[in-house]
Computed example of a mutant assay.
Amino acid sequence: MTNPTRFWDRAAEKYAASPIKDMPAYEYTLDRTRSYLKSTDRVLELGCGTGSTGLLLAGAVAHYHGTDISPEMIRIARDKAASDNVDNITFSAATAEDGIAEAGPVDVVLALNLLHLLRDVEDVFDAIHGALPQGGYFISKTVCLAEPSIGLRRFAFRAMIPLMRLVRLAPFVRSFRFDGLEKSIEAAGFEVIETSTGPVMSRYIVARKV
């Protein structure tokens, strides 16, 4: 079994150096997410990677905290924040649930390209709900490999992952459908208020705590 911390530690330098594959889609996600943020908000990003998204969004909020399971990802994120002189952003190495527990009160929780990598995702939804005030936002973007609307491509991707995991070239990946993911978020006590479909079988979801 691939250890997720070691997997992402090994991948960190290459991940940091890789260009964004679809910049228009990435900028769309940033713009839609930024539209929900206020200057007084405290934001928690789970699975922040090397901090690129956080550094672009931090200027819109009072404080931004990113967590990632990989200490090497966090090291790179801290170096980037120091280099860019962004002083309202912090980072820590933690699992999703530990990151939520340690963050303290927050107004918005982000999980961008993370949920399909979590085994205990329903527990994470419950923890996010508990951390947010009523009306607080949970914003996610998730690869959904079981979504029928994406056609036959999903079968090829799903077939490759177990083989890649055998040789430790891929982490655990959970297969969501769009409707199943949204229902799971709603079952945790959220109202889904915006969705869109991105490239590479991704679903962008904005949910509000009710």
Rank of each mutant, 00 (worst) to 15 (best):
S196R: 11
A146V: 07
A188I: 09
A170R: 13
A131M: 12
M160V: 12
L118G: 03
E122M: 07
G180E: 12
L169V: 03
D87T: 15
H116F: 13
V108I: 15
A77N: 09
I139M: 04
F178H: 10
L181E: 10
R203N: 06
E186S: 11
F178L: 06
L132N: 09
L117C: 04
D98N: 12
D179W: 02
L152Q: 10
A131F: 11
N85C: 15
E97L: 06
S149D: 10
L152C: 03
E191P: 08
I185V: 14
A82P: 05
I128E: 11
H129F: 14
R165P: 06
M164R: 11
A159P: 03
E186P: 10
S202E: 10
G99W: 02
R153N: 11
F157R: 14
L169K: 14
S92E: 15
V192M: 05
V124Y: 06
I76C: 01
L169F: 06
A159F: 04
R78P: 01
G189M: 04
L114K: 00
G151K: 04
A81Y: 03
A188W: 11
R153H: 08
A94P: 04
C144L: 01
K183L: 13
A188Y: 13
R165E: 04
N88S: 05
A159H: 02
P71D: 05
A170W: 11
A111G: 09
R158C: 05
I100C: 09
Y137Q: 12
P162H: 09
D79T: 08
D107T: 09
A187P: 08
I76V: 07
T197R: 14
A77C: 09
I139Y: 04
V143A: 13
A103R: 07
I74W: 01
L163I: 15
L181N: 07
A81C: 08
E186A: 12
A156Y: 12
I150Y: 09
A127H: 07
H129A: 13
S140H: 07
E147N: 00
